[in-house]
Design a protein around this nucleic acid. Structure first.
Lengths: 224, 224
DNA sequence: GTTGACAATGGACAAGCGTTCACCTAAACA
DNA sequence: TGTTTAGGTGAACGCTTGTCCATTGTCAAC
């Protein structure tokens, strides 16, 4: 057991919830806009009534060497996190996204009917390759969870999904328990089809009902 | 022959020398610093005695839709540079799809100079995401070998490579022993850069010489 | 010879924006 | 019980920075 208190643990390198939120927003903002936010923009986003609230968090992040700033200069950040799995998470705040949607959560139906709230980013993918026709309603879906790690699809990856009837062996985007996940579609002759996770620690099998399968995964795109 | 005079040609879409210089500086600045320059920094770099000299060029670039700016906000640029080479060949007018050659083997030099024989397919991708929209001469490279399995890049995957100067931590396409492979580019302050395989069974380090690095990997695409 | 794009000077204003000082609350130490 | 850390309010100061006005000059085109 780690004898240190939660407090002590937090003061070292880990970030507090608030700090993580601030950091995520900053990264997210730059990712969307290609430039950094001003302190007052951060303030506004979090509803602070003083810019100094932001300053406190920035100072903390700077002391922990997560971010670096150039004193006195506007909108200049530098983020030291080579690890950057952060791109994959992007909590919320993606309000002003302009382009074609990456659906973070298509829980409640077909992608056509999804609200803008489900969009967590933009990505235009069109692949004419190996049967991936330049066709209609394909959409990108960002992967959460590790149900497909055995076929090398990881959290944060984007999967291009084409809405169509699945065939045996296809990887499909499926609606299970109100959440869209990736599963392998299995259909043997004379038997009802079912879904299967590609992770040996997830031995679950899922029945296929109407509206379960939303489309077939055609490609994985991961930005580096 | 084009009957229009050089002048007329220039007024359309091409940039004047000065404008090209300004644009290059801005792009370059952002590469190095990860944030945009202020107008006075541009002014100083070019030795202008008035900020308005810069303003004129920026207005011109904006009118030509090369750059975009947010009025009144500091250090906010957005650079739209549709790849000149791709502009001509877009399949149908599906906005900004770029088709990227898939090079099976780029052993003998820069991708520019590669013979069409090295092309084993074409991949039509348009990703407006994480800096990938800046594709000048991007090309796709099919991965052979397992030198990058620790970052989940596998044999058969296609990596989209953008020719440009690498930064510390980038994954780069590098020419080693007459063969193009993927490596991690490491450059610590005050030290010469080197390349490193992302596979714990490949502990090799490689020095960086001229012509070694061909570009920076921006995305992985795997068709399922 | 006039027009218009291009390039640049010089000065000044106002908004954007980072920074700081004083002060407050709550929880976690020691 | 006093002290530290995280989180926040409120207001003000002043540098940074984008913007605008007036003016000058060059060069090719009409």
């Amino acid at each position: 057991m780690d004898k240190r208190s939660p407090k002590q643990l937090r003061t070292m390198k880990t970030l507090t919830t608030r700090q993580q939120e601030i950091l995520s927003f900053i990264e997210n903002y730059e990712w969307r806009n290609r430039y950094w936010p001003s302190i007052r923009e951060i303030q506004e986003k979090f509803g602070f009534k003083s810019t100094n609230a932001v300053m406190g968090h920035l100072r903390a992040l700077e002391k922990k060497q997560i971010i670096e700033r150039i004193p006195g200069q506007a909108r200049t950040f530098r983020i030291h996190r080579p690890d950057a799995s952060s791109l994959g998470q992007m909590p919320d705040n993606s309000s002003e996204v302009v382009d074609i949607p990456i659906m973070g959560d298509i829980a409640a139906g077909y992608p056509d009917r999804v609200e803008p709230a489900g969009e967590i980013g933009r990505l235009q993918v069109d692949i004419q390759h190996a049967g991936f026709n330049n066709n209609r309603r394909s959409f990108a879906l960002q992967v959460r969870g590790d149900s497909m790690v055995d076929v090398e699809i990881y959290e944060g990856d984007m999967v291009v999904v084409e809405p169509r009837e699945p065939r045996d062996g296809d990887i499909v985007a499926a609606l299970i328990d109100g959440e869209t996940t990736l599963k392998r579609y299995i259909q043997k002759a004379g038997e009802p089809p079912y879904l299967k996770a590609e992770n040996k620690f997830y031995p679950e099998l899922y029945p296929v009902t109407e509206l379960t399968v939303q489309g077939v995964a055609k490609a994985v795109v991961r930005s580096l």
